[in-house]
Amino acid sequence: MGLELDLVTKQYGSKTVCDRISITFQKGIYGLLGANGAGKTTLIRMMCGVLAPTSGTISFNKIDVSHEDYRDALGYLPQDFGYYPEFSALNFLLYIAALKGLPKPQAEEKAWELLEQVSLDKDARKRIKTFSGGMKQRLGIAQSMLNNPQILILDEPTAGLDPKERIRFRNMISRLGADRIVLLSTHIVSDIEHIAGTILVMKDGSLIHQGTRDEIISSIDGKVWECTLSQSDSVGICKKYPVINIRQESGGTVLLRLISEEKPCAEAVNTQATLEDLYLYYFSEVSEQ
């Protein structure tokens, strides 16, 4: 039971964008981490039934992704969230509610409730075309929750949100994750570091890691180093290893945080790894590109 992906593959010609992905989601928050082009959005689109897999199956409680009942259980915020500029925020939510099959009185009540939750209740009757990027994103989050979905899939949900909104959004997702499946796709590590119970790491169309934050991070234990070097020595190290952080210290030295399989220099000391370190470990080449 739960949301099951069985050998889900998507190919465009000879290019494999998602490669035999199998996973079962149970209630809880999942963070899908990967660089741009890793295949996160393709996987999400297949899970939302808007893109057919080349092979494999996706089902929720044995209901196939193509079935109306699957969509009835789904809430989805796409990466490039489209809207109708001439609609007001309230009208837009009522329209999506009608699409999701909510009866009119219930739709209105739910729309107002969500508008309040995303702090758009005062702007409910304003046209969406007058909204800032952050307001549109909040509206997108609200529409995804209209049908109180059992599966909530959010693709880059915090794009355009300011730090305060981002924290409020994380708290909201934490509450929602208690009684549903929430999949949060992002390349912003801090979005999922503290709220995702399970983190999925995707690279080149495959899931290369899945587990709790600590389980995932343990895969790079002993590979994160910190060292204080002179300016001139640091240049050579920076060229040789993926550097996570550079901090100027007093006395003309720099503190480097980097990733390396072996000790990069005599001054280097092993340090506790974080999710950001893991991200850099797997995606440094992609990020540099």
Binding site: R45, C48, G49, V50, E68, R71, D72, L74, Y76, P78, D80, F81, G82, Y83, Y84, I96, A98, L99, K100, G101, Q143, N147
Partner: peptide
Amino acid sequence: EYTSGTDQLILSAKHGKNKL
């Protein structure tokens, strides 16, 4: 719906592939 990107919302909604 294609140009505005609302097709994703529509086609993933309960009635998006029939009643709508």
